[in-house]
Design a protein around this nucleic acid. Structure first.
Lengths: 335, 335
DNA sequence: TTGTAAGCGTTATCAT
DNA sequence: ATGATAACGCTTACAA
């Protein structure tokens, strides 16, 4: 017996009158064990309340059955929705998740990825607003598989799952264009937000195709939070825009309420389409018309891809684009 | 050299002309190393790009520097807000977090806690709607420290961080009582929601103190989601209640919008106070008056307590109650 | 200040 | 079908 109460595979072996190898076999479901000894071992395991030590297992087998998930902000409904999908599939494939908050900070991002590596995670799901060169090089000099979720890689190096943000945005703008000429593009900080930039391209393309002039004065860059959207209302009003495509739901909710408090009624005087398709868009009054995107699936499928890579299975597609749409609610007018 | 490219502490030792013990010492910041050798080792570590294997470290030291966090639903803004606080403090103390989703399911809860144990986490933060006997026994037969966050232990066995839900609710009801006689209590499923039950007690006490009769007909039990709240509106209308204390923000938002769609105006015809103090309460129109509670701190302080226990420091208090209040917004009338 | 060597609790490779 | 035994990469007495 040990000095403390931790019971090891060795205790079980001795108690069951077999070798630790055999115990290991039954624990791991190896077929090469006589039914009788399996029973006996199982009985001892139960009696001693033996629980395999996953750390020792990880060291010996070089597989930890845990994956790292890098998330910029857990309280962001968009990322939380993806995380839910990731988690469900991870559980399905018996992986645990170590959550690494990057706080939208480039340096911290590198730091957490490194501790993830040191923890010997079997794979990583990465969510972020962009891919720095630094993080890219961290990924490439490691053999640990990485899949991007809701994060596009403009260099097409890493496997990823996204929707076509450019066309989704263009579709939304086109919808607005039916009844508006001056359409604002409202987003968070674009400097290091790849998705945001791609959306801006979609915005421009839609305008161009409709023969509407693009004006920088109609691009409003701020932060992603509710209060930022609220504060933006005033500027939107003086811009004479009559509609806006907004790249985040909290931001859109803030803008909506801010507009209302400036006496602008949505959708009569001003139309809004938001982009995240999170629950928030349903809570506001009027409820927000939004680009439709399968948040849960974005996460779920990225995790599924990761399991395939970890298990050395063939990947049909390295860059998955999920379908998008438009959910019309009350912040846009009919026809 | 190894066959594959993983560089170990042994490689560094050989390359630097010292023993692995010395390398271990510099990696762990042990003072007993001559400045010169430290420099040399550090140089080699850098050159070889050596990264300590946390799994091996964990096995040898019996400390993994990771804590498990059990969360019923990551997309729930309430829990996500706590998780943020937990995560920030964990990072501050150099702990990583393995997130375990319990899905509000008793069996799954036990399962995830067990895999957390098998992963040798140094501690656990537990969030849930209640504490089953099963989970309680899992916790007590393990030496791994556990702290409850936003989860009360009616048996006062486990350390916890909460607000005084009973009095917070009573305060809110008292506020409603100034202008209403028929006040509804709207909650999620009470069967296994300890906090909900405690809130109900607060509701009853406030009524009693005001000499208002308690009526079961004014207690509305449903689920916690937006749609459930929305659906409840009709029943609330026919109950003749003129106000409601609601135990969840999504639920309250649904109720609010449902009421509006039934031609009931809030706060003129009906007053609502919600309980979570999450962002959601600010997004709705009218915005929701809510019990004020320090969500982030609830998580942060529970994690701080856990670090103290893990480091064998003294705990001043085993059951922390954080202050609560009332944030008046637009779903209640003035005076 | 530094080195030696015995674990830590498994898995995995050979034998048998 | 089962058992020895050597890794796995590190920490930690204990010596020196």
């Amino acid at each position: 017996m040990n000095t403390d109460d931790t019971v090891t595979i060795y205790d079980v072996a001795r108690e069951a009158g077999v070798s630790m190898a055999t115990v290991s076999r039954v624990v791991n479901g190896n077929k090469n064990v006589k039914e009788n000894t399996r029973k006996k071992v199982l009985e001892v395991i139960d009696r001693l309340d033996y629980r395999p030590n996953a750390v020792a297992r990880g060291l010996a087998s070089k597989r930890t059955t845990t994956v790292g998930v890098v998330i910029p902000d857990i309280t962001n409904t968009y990322f939380a929705a993806l995380a839910k999908g990731i988690d469900d599939i991870a559980e399905m494939y018996k992986y645990n998740i170590v959550l690494a908050n990057s706080d939208e900070d480039d340096e911290k991002e590198v730091a957490v990825v490194n501790t993830l590596f040191s923890k010997q995670v079997d794979g990583i799901i990465f969510m972020g607003y962009h891919l720095t060169e630094k993080i890219r090089s961290e990924f490439s000099r490691s053999r640990t598989p990485v899949v991007l979720a809701g994060t596009v890689d403009v260099e097409h190096q890493l496997p990823s799952v996204n929707i076509d943000y450019k066309n989704a945005t263009a579709d939304a703008v086109r919808h607005l264009l039916k009844r508006n000429k001056k359409i604002a593009f409202v987003s968070g900080p674009l400097v290091d937000d790849i998705n945001g930039k791609i959306r801006l391209v979609g915005y421009k393309e839609a305008l161009k195709a409709a023969g509407v002039n693009y004006s920088e004065g109609l691009v409003f860059e701020s932060k992603y939070r509710y209060d930022d959207g609220y504060a933006l209302a005033e500027r939107l009003v003086s811009s004479k825009a009559t509609a806006a495509i907004v790249t985040g739901d909290e931001l859109a909710a803030g803008l909506l309420n801010g507009l209302a408090d400036h006496g602008v009624s949505v959708p009569e005087d001003f139309e809004i389409i938001t982009s995240d398709d999170s629950q928030i868009a349903r809570f506001t009054r009027p409820s927000l018309t939004t680009i439709a995107q399968p948040l849960y699936d974005l996460g779920a499928i990225s995790m599924r891809m990761l399991t395939k890579i970890m298990h050395k299975e063939e990947l049909e597609e390295r860059e998955v684009l999920l379908p998008h749409g438009l959910t019309e609610r009350k912040s846009t007018r009919k026809k």
